[in-house]
Amino acid sequence: MATREEIMKLHDGELSEAEAQRVRASLSAEDRLRLEALREIGDAVREQLEARAGASKLDVWAGISDRLDAEPAAVVPLRRRRSIWIASGVAVLAAAATAMALMVGPHRPLDGVTIESVDFGESAGMLFQIHDTKTTVLWQTTNEEEQE
């Protein structure tokens, strides 16, 4: 008989292949019914939300197409490099922009600089847009950086 935690992790794909095999081998008839119940709940939630979303008349493009022109069409990704001068330059810019943000308030255009938090999926970061030069700088925190 598997534990509650093992059953949940097995259902959610959180076990390694070896662990999953071991747990599958230990499942009782009740455990199998619990797994089936978990699948049923998941199906119900997914189907309901997708059906509700599908029934909505949604035209996201109409809502964002005009706004795209106001956003930077192309940005210069600035990832962490070994060259210390680049890192130093960005750090100085980030520090200056952050200081300005703290003084005036977050997410507001500041004397020619706009700062915005950005989600990159695996990581997060900040976007600094300098209006005069039309320069956009992305500061991305990678997993590697977070671990350091």
Partner: peptide
């Protein structure tokens, strides 16, 4: 809408290490 605008602004930084939809849903 906000999510897609963020995606547009951040496309330059998307490295393709994860699937696009994974990134978008996050």
């Amino acid at each position: 809408q906000e999510a897609f605008l963020k995606v547009w602004k951040s496309l330059g930084s998307f490295q393709g290490q994860s699937a696009f939809y994974t990134w978008l849903y996050r």
